[in-house]
C-alpha cells in the first residue's frame, strides 16, 4: 500500500516539476502573446484590458499559483487561438493522436517481431543480411522523411490514396466519439474501418518504421543471446524444432530488454507525431502543438506539455509492470 502511495506521490512530483519548468520557460522566452492578439494600431487601454483579462498583469509567482490551482481542477484555461477551453481542444484532438500512436506501435511491433523471429529462426547469412539491411535503412531515415517519401510515391503512383486528413469529409461519418478507428471496429462497421485505414496507414507506417528498426535490433540480439543458453540446447535434445524453441523458450527471455527499449522509443514516437500530423494534416495534438507555438497560445502549450508528460509517465509505469510480467525473477518473492 505504501508502495502504491509512494509511486502516486512520485507521479505528482514529476508533474509538478514539469509544470514549473513549462510555466517558467514560456514566460522567459521572448515574444508577447498580447501583441499577437491585438489588431494593428490598438490603444494602450485595449492592451491593458486584455492583459487583465488573461491575468498577465499579476506577478509570475501569482500567475503560476493561479494556473496550478486551475490545472489541478483540469482547467488549463482558454486557448487564445481557438477561443475554447484548452481541455476541450485537447480532448477533441487527443483521440486522433492516440489512434495514430497505437496504430504505429502495432505496425512496428508486428514488423519487428516477424523480422527478428524470422532472422533468428532461419539463421542463414542471407536472411541476416537482408533483415539487418532493412532495419538499418528504416532506422537511418527519420520518420518525417519517410512521410515525405510516402507522399511522393503515393502522389506519383497511387493518386487515389489519400495523403491528408483523417477521413473523407464528403462521406461524413457519424461517430459518437473521436476514436474513429476504434469505434468503427467495436461497432463492426468494417467498411468505414477500411476507409479510415486508407487515411491512417501512411502516417502510421512513417512513424512506425524507425521504431520497428530499433525494436528489431534489440529483439534480434536478445533472441540470439537467449538461443545460446544451455536451456535451448536442452530443449533441442527434447526434440523441439527450432521455431518452437525460438517462440517457446527464447522469446520470453528476450522481452525485458525489448520492453525497456520500446518504452524509450515510444516517447520519441509520440514526439514524432508533431511533425507527422502536420505533414498529413491530421487534426491531432501534434498539429495543435505546432499552431499553438506559432501563435503563442500559452495555455494550449502548457496543457499539451502536461498531457504529454502524463503520457510519458504512464508509459514508464506500465513498462515497469511489463518487466515483472515478462520476467519472474523481477517479481517480489512469494
Amino acid at each position: 500500500m505504501t508502495r502504491f502511495a509512494l509511486s502516486l506521490a512520485s507521479i505528482g512530483l514529476t508533474l509538478l516539476g514539469v509544470s514549473v519548468v513549462v510555466f517558467a520557460i514560456l514566460r522567459l522566452v521572448p515574444g508577447d502573446p498580447i501583441a499577437m492578439m491585438l489588431p494593428p494600431g490598438a490603444t494602450d487601454e485595449v492592451r491593458a484590458n486584455l492583459e487583465r483579462l488573461y491575468g498577465l498583469d499579476k506577478s509570475i509567482a501569482q500567475q503560476y499559483l493561479i494556473w496550478l490551482g486551475d490545472v489541478v481542477r483540469l482547467d488549463f484555461g482558454t486557448s487564445t487561438q481557438f477561443r475554447l477551453p484548452v481541455l476541450e481542444v485537447i480532448l477533441d484532438r487527443l483521440p486522433a493522436t492516440l489512434e495514430l500512436v497505437l496504430l504505429a506501435s502495432l505496425i512496428a511491433g508486428l514488423l519487428a517481431f516477424t523480422l527478428s523471429i524470422l532472422a533468428v529462426w532461419l539463421q542463414t547469412p542471407l536472411a541476416t543480411f537482408v533483415i539487418d539491411g532493412l532495419s538499418g535503412l528504416a532506422q537511418a531515415i527519420p520518420d518525417f522523411l519517410w512521410a515525405l517519401i510516402f507522399i511522393l510515391i503515393v502522389t506519383l503512383f497511387l493518386p487515389n490514396m489519400p495523403i491528408s486528413g483523417r477521413f473523407d469529409p464528403r462521406t461524413a461519418q457519424e461517430f459518437s466519439t473521436n476514436f474513429f478507428l476504434l469505434e468503427s471496429l467495436v461497432t463492426l462497421r468494417f467498411q468505414a474501418f477500411a476507409e479510415l485505414m486508407r487515411y491512417a496507414i501512411l502516417p502510421a507506417t512513417a512513424l512506425a518504421l524507425p521504431l520497428a528498426a530499433g525494436i528489431t535490433r534489440v529483439l534480434k540480439s536478445s533472441l540470439e543471446e537467449a538461443m545460446a543458453q544451455d536451456y535451448v540446447m536442452l530443449a533441442q535434445t527434447k526434440g523441439k524444432s527450432r521455431l518452437t524453441i525460438v517462440l517457446g523458450e527464447a522469446l520470453r527471455n528476450a522481452m525485458v530488454p525489448t520492453i525497456a527499449l520500446t518504452s524509450v522509443q515510444l516517447t520519441f514516437l509520440i514526439g514524432g507525431t508533431v511533425l507527422i500530423e502536420r505533414q498529413f494534416s491530421l487534426p491531432g495534438i501534434g498539429s495543435a502543438a505546432i499552431s499553438a507555438v506559432l501563435n503563442r497560445d500559452l495555455p494550449l502549450i502548457q496543457g499539451i506539455v502536461m498531457i504529454f508528460a502524463l503520457i510519458f509517465i504512464l508509459i514508464n509505469l506500465s513498462s515497469n509492470g511489463l518487466y515483472k510480467l515478462a520476467d519472474p525473477r523481477l517479481r517480489k518473492p512469494r
Binding site: 536442452l234 535434445t237 520470453r252 520476467d327
Partner: peptide
C-alpha cells in the same frame, strides 16, 4: 532421440528456462 536419449547439463542455473 527425443524419446531415446536425454541430457543432464552442468550448470543447473542456466539449463532451466528462467521464465517458465
Amino acid at each position: 532421440q527425443s524419446r531415446t536419449t536425454a541430457f543432464i547439463p552442468q550448470d543447473p542455473l542456466t539449463a532451466l528456462n528462467p521464465c517458465r
